[in-house]
Amino acid sequence: MEKTEAHWVASMTSIAQHKDQKAFAEVFRHFAPRVKAFLIKSGADYALAEECMQDVMATLWHKAHLYDPSRASVATWIFTIARNRKIDLLRRYARPEPEDLPWGPEDAPDQVDAIALQQESTKLVDAVRKLPQKQRDLIERAYFGDLTHNEIAAETGLPLGTIKSRIRLALERLRHAMN
């Protein structure tokens, strides 16, 4: 059975707080094959994709304490690490990343915000899954990097609008989480 977002968030907390190798192995079994598939579809060969995927999963272990469930789903956080590592390796420059938000004890992730984000994130995954195959392929290709976004907008039309409204909902939650 498919694990819920709450399950993966709990795994991340356990890795961060208890260096939980069992939780890590489970996260690895689920996400590593997807990260590797993402890298292959982005143009990496099998050997490079395996190497890069291992870097991504090792980074996940060491950065687990920086993961904030009120700002991104686990899949999204892993996606951003994989995307950055891909750029480091394929294009050979360190990707410029935004400055971290100021962080203090009072900014600890709020449980309610985190749950709201998990719900929105799950809805977004569902919305992408329900797209007709052709449109889904276009969105995927945009994120693998072989299609410009103007082409996406032209070819997807209304379904992209659906996705955008889903994003807007997610954004409201995100904005709330940041206030």
């Binding site: 291992q54 991104a72 899949a75 999204t76 992408v128 994003i167 995100l174």
Partner: peptide
């Protein structure tokens, strides 16, 4: 926040990808 939305879309794409075969001693 708008960027966070587009990154969520990237996360949704990753969640939905097929699985590539890993090296036997990957973990």
């Amino acid at each position: 926040v708008r960027l966070a939305g587009y990154e969520e879309l990237g996360g949704a794409v990753l969640s939905d990808l097929g699985e590539a075969e890993l090296a036997p001693d990957s973990l």
